[in-house]
Amino acid sequence: MSKNRKFYIGGFIVSLFLAGVVSFYASSSPDGLEKVAGDIGFIETAKDHTYADGVLADYGVKGIENERASVGVAGVIGVIGTAVIAGVFFKIIARKPEKTKR
């Protein structure tokens, strides 16, 4: 079991590091779809996001001025949030009713 634990803790820490630290160095150029929309012109048809003023909108924490900290904290919150939600969700999915257990 300890090997199992090591693997999952390792994977989680790598994810935290990527979202919390490396994300600051990500390219801020428009992504493929945005770029195409801009070049061709249909970017004008985009509407503002419903939660554009949300606390974590665009992977930054509202109120944290330092950009590195803002994106880093947003990333960490996202990783922990995804871990909790996906963890519980897949645990429920994988649960086998006693009857069908062979």
């Binding site: 989680f12 990500a26 996906a86």
Partner: peptide, 25 residues
């Protein structure tokens, strides 16, 4: 648990836009 970790890893790596051609990531 691997399915959960996969979702976590994908969330993290989706934050990492890499440059593709000039002005696009």
């Amino acid at each position: 648990p691997l399915a959960g970790l996969t979702a976590v890893f994908i969330f993290a790596v989706q934050m990492l836009n890499f440059p593709v051609v000039a002005g696009t990531s």
